[in-house]
Computed example of a mutant assay.
Amino acid sequence: MSKSSAKFKNAKDKRQKVVDAQGWTHVVRGPKLGHAHSRLVTGLDGLSISPLPDTIDLRNILSRYDKIWTSSPACEKLLTFLEEEVIPAAEVAIRKCICLGLGSLSDGRESSRFQFVTLSSILRLLNQESRVDQVIFQDPAFTRSDMEYLETQGHTVVASPAAFDLVDPNTFLFAPHLEHEYYAKAVEKHLPAITIGSDVDALLEGTCIPSDHQVGDFDTRKILQRFRAETKCYPMPKFEQDPWYLFTSLYWRSHPADGS
């Protein structure tokens, strides 16, 4: 590899954290923000990411990701465990799915796309057991293309922080890599029937997350401790094609929902 090629590769691989006006942190690939990074636009509301291009065919793109995921041992292992162990233990009909912090599907991030097809495969399984009437997405990073695609699939996109108040005991919460304060906000009022999210033990121990994400607020810690005490846990199976499964776990209630 030439020096110039190596220099370009290193610049391309750099990641930056950008916090928008609503407090969400986005990891941005690429060199310094500026004119060279044409897909990034900074406005009064912070960072917005425009699709590349506006006419991107998400249906075909995600279909390819879905084939990779559904043919993987990780998918088979996860769905089998859900069907045999988790869904029967939940002892409730799951009527709602809420997805938080997925990231943009149209800006080329493979992890977001693999997360989405993972979610889709789980929804197909859940719909065999009961009807999931609402599938709700919330992420300030969504582009116009993302929102249009999700809506064509019959899903609902809401602005932050609306989705946090929609979680109830009949909810499947899908929130991989969600930061601790938002995670706690999502599970504060109700314990979802099933959750796929950041490893709560790692968040509480503060050993597997950056130092600036340490759990320091007492209420946040208390909420996450209660969540962990009331759930059973299963680490997400290893997925060879993408590392998004790292520090992510599947949780389900260790006791029936109140009133069930």
Rank of each mutant, 00 (worst) to 15 (best):
S48C: 00
H155A: 07
Q138P: 01
T25S: 13
Y251M: 03
D258H: 09
P161S: 07
V158N: 05
Q138N: 08
S120F: 11
V167T: 11
Y149H: 13
E179R: 04
Q214H: 13
A162Q: 15
E230S: 14
S254P: 00
L82C: 12
K185F: 06
Q225L: 12
R144H: 09
Q214Y: 11
S112K: 01
N127M: 03
R29C: 04
K238M: 01
T156L: 11
V28T: 07
R124H: 12
A21R: 12
P235K: 06
P169Q: 05
S198Y: 03
A11V: 04
F137Q: 05
R228E: 12
C233T: 13
N127I: 04
P88Q: 00
W24T: 05
A89F: 01
G34E: 12
S63Q: 15
P210G: 10
G101P: 05
S2I: 03
V117S: 07
I49L: 11
Q225R: 14
D66W: 12
E188V: 04
R124C: 09
V200W: 08
D242A: 01
P210V: 10
K17L: 12
E84H: 07
P210L: 08
F137Y: 13
T152H: 09
G103C: 00
K12Q: 13
S71G: 15
T80F: 10
K12V: 08
